[in-house]
């Protein structure tokens, strides 16, 4: 595809046991781009993100992030660690370190993985926590925070390591409905800083407004991709149209156009 892509994955295959879950994913993401990954439950969106972050080991394919590329079939531990440190993941269930404070959750990756000096890490962590609106809860433990606050820390933790690509896996799906919008607003603000984002979401309005590109997955493959206007307004594939119809039911067609 493109030489300027900051992340490029080719021919990604992944099976769990005998069950193929990803069957040849090709995807390239431009620097500063926000890519929304849509698709029905079980289509392999989480698995794709986890393969990009090496939380799952893909069976085949190549992955390049910035100037480092690797054959996924025979990736070495060191390469995996180095590539993994170029991405950061925000999880559906926040998954903050339960034994650490808010501040420590954010400094952990900086100090331990990136070997940043402690003082420097704390300054960085305070900055991003300020950015996500949690500067006053530095010493709180995860269990003392609401879901929305925990996800803010999750986003801060990912932002702090200044990754080449930020990966979000349904970041608002576990939140109380009234908290969803504020987290989406925060993610939009992050996108506006020019960061590169891949975000799995079921928030169609958000995908439409914020994403530069929408990728629709089903059955372990990319069915269709394009600008939000193209995919929402005039899907080329029947499967895409059917999927989107479920979300736009009852709303006027102009809603997305």
């Amino acid at each position: 595809m493109s030489h300027d892509a900051i992340l490029e994955v080719r021919g990604l295959h992944k099976s769990f046991g005998k069950k193929p879950v990803l069957t040849g994913i090709d995807l390239a993401v431009e620097p500063g781009e926000t890519v929304a990954l849509l698709g029905p439950s079980g289509s392999g969106k989480t698995t794709l993100l986890r393969c990009l972050n090496f939380l799952e080991c893909a069976d085949a394919g190549t992955l390049r992030i910035e100037n480092q590329s690797v054959d996924l079939r025979q990736a070495h531990k060191k390469e995996i660690l180095a590539l993994r440190r170029r991405t950061a993941m925000v999880f559906q269930n926040y998954d903050l370190f339960l034994n650490k404070t808010v501040l420590q959750n954010v400094t952990e990756g900086l100090i331990v993985a990136r070997k940043a000096p402690k003082e420097e890490a704390i300054v960085t962590a305070k900055q991003v926590l300020e950015q996500v609106g949690l500067a006053d809860r530095l010493d709180a433990r995860p269990h003392e925070l609401s879901g929305g606050q925990q996800q803010r820390v999750g986003i801060a933790r990912a932002l702090a390591i200044n990754p080449a690509v930020l990966l979000f896996d349904e970041p608002t799906s576990a939140l109380d409905p009234e908290k969803v919008q504020e987290i989406l607003d925060l993610i939009r603000a992050v996108a506006d800083t020019g960061m590169t984002l891949i975000i799995v979401t079921h928030e169609m309005a958000f995908a439409y407004e914020v994403a530069h590109r929408v990728v629709f997955m089903e059955g372990g493959e990319i069915v269709e991709q394009g600008t939000p206007q193209q995919v929402f307004g005039a899907p080329k594939q029947e499967r895409t149209a059917q999927f989107l119809a479920r979300f736009t039911e009852g709303k006027t067609p102009e809603y997305f156009i």
Partner: peptide, 27 residues
């Protein structure tokens, strides 16, 4: 210790040994 704690730690770039020492064992 929940699987997700491993994922979060390794996803943050910690090695397996660091994950044991700093996240999993304390919990």
């Amino acid at each position: 210790v929940p699987r997700a704690q491993w994922d979060a730690a390794e996803g943050s770039g910690l090695t397996r040994a660091q994950t044991y020492r700093r996240i999993v064992l304390p919990q």
